[in-house]
Amino acid sequence: MRIDGCPPGLAAKNNGCLPPGQARKWIGQRAPAALATSLLPVAYRSWYPDNGDYLYREQDGLIYRVARSTNLVDGYAPLFGYGPDYYPDYYPAGEAYPSDYVSFYNVPLPYQRYYTDAGNDLYRYGDGGIYQVDRSTGLVDSIVALLAGDLSMGQPLPPGYDVYNVPYQYRDRYADSADEWYRYNDGYIYQVDPKTRLITAVIEALV
């Protein structure tokens, strides 16, 4: 359930549904010493692995990206719990995406080849999901991937999946019809019965 229009993950911070003020102050600044040893939780390390250009560190519920060459903080993403039986309360299509997160491309590494900013479409990670955001309005167009555990045949389609979200390169093969929907999640395309909203097939592994 949303709390005053804010998903629980941000509402719990009691800061107007925005990331902590500290996050905005750190952007463009040298990374504080305390951040250097604040490693990400294990579950996030494959999403945001350290590499030759960047380090990823966690503080106060946020993932910070630190440029190795300058030691400056140049981006962040929300840290949020997830698991096989857990689905956060997602931002629905048509709602404004939090402005603090729109400024930085923060899609987890395994998904970046599918969701890169192009034209009027921005892709942003937040609270266990990847969102397509309209560049000109800042509104959510659709949830394109839930990263909150595997879905399986016979399971109900999670809330927030009313909008068709199959990656563009697969849309010729998997288009919605009166009898079948297709939805993408976490590397798979799912066939769904529109009447019951139950998953009827797992048909394609993309990653």
Score class of each variant (00 low, 15 high):
M1T: 11
R2M: 10
R2N: 03
I3H: 03
P7V: 00
P8W: 10
G9E: 09
A12Q: 13
A12S: 06
G16F: 03
L18S: 05
L18F: 14
P20R: 01
P20V: 01
A23P: 05
I27N: 02
G28E: 00
Q29H: 04
Q29P: 02
A31P: 05
A33C: 04
L40P: 11
P41F: 07
A43R: 14
R45G: 11
W47Q: 03
Y48I: 04
Y48N: 01
N51D: 00
G52K: 01
L55K: 01
L55H: 10
Y56P: 00
Y56F: 02
R57D: 00
R57C: 05
E58D: 04
G61M: 03
R65Y: 06
A67N: 02
A67I: 08
R68I: 13
V73N: 09
A77S: 06
F80V: 13
P84A: 00
P88R: 02
D89N: 10
D89R: 01
Y90N: 15
P92W: 09
G94K: 04
E95A: 11
A96V: 13
A96Y: 09
Y97R: 02
P98F: 07
V102Q: 11
S103P: 12
N106T: 02
N106C: 03
V107I: 04
V107A: 05
L109H: 03
P110S: 03
Y111M: 14
Q112T: 05
D117W: 11
D117M: 07
A118N: 14
G119C: 06
G119Q: 09
G119K: 08
N120I: 12
N120G: 09
G126I: 00
G126K: 00
G128C: 10
R135E: 02
R135V: 03
G138Q: 08
A145E: 05
L146Q: 15
G149R: 02
D150K: 10
Q155K: 14
L157K: 08
L157Q: 10
P159A: 11
P159W: 12
G160I: 02
Y161N: 12
V163C: 10
Y164D: 01
Y164S: 13
N165S: 06
Y168D: 03
D172M: 08
A175G: 13
A175W: 06
S177Q: 07
D179T: 06
D179A: 15
E180S: 14
W181C: 14
W181I: 11
Y182I: 00
N185L: 13
I189Q: 01
D193I: 06
P194A: 03
R197I: 13
A201V: 11
I203H: 09
E204K: 12
V207N: 15
V207W: 15
V207G: 15
